[in-house]
């Protein structure tokens, strides 16, 4: 168990291995999103009540899922960083934050566009929408806090602690539609029940969600790789790498 973790935590090992995964993550992610959006926007049936405006969910739902998954991943990285002091975990958490913030914004924005024809308003201060807006502010706060410290380690620890406090917001977002009266509807999908949507509608959505996950992984891995190089430009293996690229060119 421990040797694997230490291997995973080694920037050099991660850099070498992730270079092989990266093309697959980008490629399969792009293919899935292309198929999913064409299928969802052009071929899936319209909804019986909302008509074509329901198709916004093919962006809204993956964005909302990724906004929360990205935060969960950052929280996990923060625990690993704070307890085991594995720097790679901190680099990954820092690399993921802007993507999560972008996904949160996309979910809020697409939801507002959908809200106008469906609800009759683009914003309402209900528990789901408000907790999601709070998530966006937490993301921005984490990114700002990391940059606000003179020492990199201080900023990293402060960001990790804020991430762990912010993780309490995740169950609040998830259960907001159960605990309180909200304008936002309850969950269409759950692990235990049949989805309240036919397969012709949820299959393209599933492709979109998997595609978003792969692109998230690709962006995070690529940004983590950049951060590794940025932090230790004079490490021997980095110099050897740069030398090799120069010779290769």
């Amino acid at each position: 168990m421990w040797p694997i973790i230490h291997k995973l935590g080694s920037p050099k090992w991660f850099y070498t291995m992730s270079g092989r995964w990266l093309p697959f993550l980008w490629g399969i992610g792009a293919i899935l999103i292309t198929i999913g959006s064409l299928w969802g926007l052009a071929f899936a049936p319209a909804d019986y009540q909302q008509g074509d405006s329901f198709r916004i969910l093919y962006v809204h739902v993956p964005a909302a899922i990724l906004a929360q998954s990205c935060f969960a991943m950052m929280a996990l990285c923060s625990v690993i960083f704070l307890v085991w002091r594995i720097k790679l975990a901190d680099m990954a958490a820092g690399a993921a934050a802007p993507f999560g913030a972008a996904m949160t914004f996309s979910a809020l924005f697409s939801g507002a566009i959908w809200g106008v024809p469906t609800w009759g308003t683009w914003w309402v201060w209900d528990a789901r929408l408000t907790s999601m807006l709070l998530l966006l502010f937490i993301y921005l706060g984490i990114m700002a806090l990391r940059g606000a410290f003179a020492s990199r380690d201080g900023g990293a620890r402060a960001a990790a602690i804020l991430t762990l406090v912010g993780v309490i917001n995740l169950p609040i977002i998830k259960y907001s539609v159960v605990w309180w009266n909200t304008l936002h509807q309850g969950a269409t999908f759950s692990l235990t029940e049949k989805p309240a949507m036919p397969a012709s509608m949820w299959l393209p959505l599933l492709l979109m969600v998997i595609g978003f996950y792969l692109i998230f992984a690709a962006v995070t891995v690529a940004r983590t790789r950049n951060e590794i190089i940025r932090r230790q430009p004079s490490a021997r293996w980095v110099r050897a790498l740069a030398q090799g690229e120069r010779n290769g060119l």
Binding site: Y48, A187, P198
Partner: peptide, 11 residues
């Protein structure tokens, strides 16, 4: 405001 429920289906 209209509240949408969690059900989606084709017409």
């Amino acid at each position: 405001l209209a509240k949408h429920d969690e059900n989606y289906m084709p017409p």
